Amino acid sequence: MSFDLESASVTWLRGHNGSGKSTLLNCILGADEVDTGTISWKGHPRRETDAAFRGAVSAAVDSNSYFSDVSVIEHLRLIAVCNGVRGSDEAALHWCDRSGLAAVSDALPGALSSGQRQRMALAMAMIRPFELLVLDEPERHLDTEGCAWLADTLAEFVAAGRAVLAATHDSALADSIAGTTIELGQ
């Protein structure tokens, strides 16, 4: 398989369960290694330990990646501070509101619904600066309103020149933002 990701674009990975979508995303992020071939970032072999790569790529691949004793707003502040976001408190409040989590901003993750935890995971990936946003089934656990928010937000990122790579089973989401679709497992 070979493909390029361009700025201001979205690339959708589609395929049945077990076709390799999540594995491919994990290889791109450096959580897994490819058996053969290379993954390049800006013309050089990708090194997940490279600060430039880590600074340019944000990901939400697991909505269960959180600290159980840290509130929603504290998670967002932590990500903002660690990634040099100016006005981290204001940014955290903005993303709580924007992601529909303002009413539960002081709640711990264990008290959230699965949809709210997914929104938190997405907001944690979106609050920080990035050139490439990598998402694994970002629509998972989201209701209709959440999917609309997700589609609008991704469209804004693409319009602002950022690239999005997302695995999805949701045809409506993939159809909502024109992009390249790669079918796996065919």
Rank of each mutant, 00 (worst) to 15 (best):
C96P: 06
H75D: 12
D35T: 14
G84V: 03
Y66W: 14
Q116D: 14
S63R: 12
T168S: 15
T180Q: 06
E137T: 04
A167C: 08
P129C: 06
L108A: 12
P138T: 01
N17A: 06
A163L: 07
L112R: 11
V85W: 08
T49L: 12
A92P: 00
L184H: 01
L25S: 01
R54D: 14
S99W: 15
D175M: 04
A51C: 13
R98F: 07
K42Y: 08
G30R: 00
V158K: 08
A174H: 01
M124L: 08
C147D: 08
D106M: 10
S171C: 07
V70E: 15
L150S: 01
I79H: 05
G146D: 03
A103Q: 06
I73D: 05
C96T: 05
C96S: 05
E183A: 08
A111T: 12
V85H: 04
A151N: 01
I39S: 15
A59W: 02
I39A: 10
L29G: 00
L29W: 03
N26M: 02
A159T: 10
A111N: 12
A111C: 13
H169M: 11
G185A: 07
S40M: 09
G20N: 02
M124F: 03
S176W: 04
R77A: 10
V85C: 05
G18K: 06
G161C: 06
V70P: 13
R117G: 11
V10H: 03
P45D: 13
L24V: 13
M1E: 01
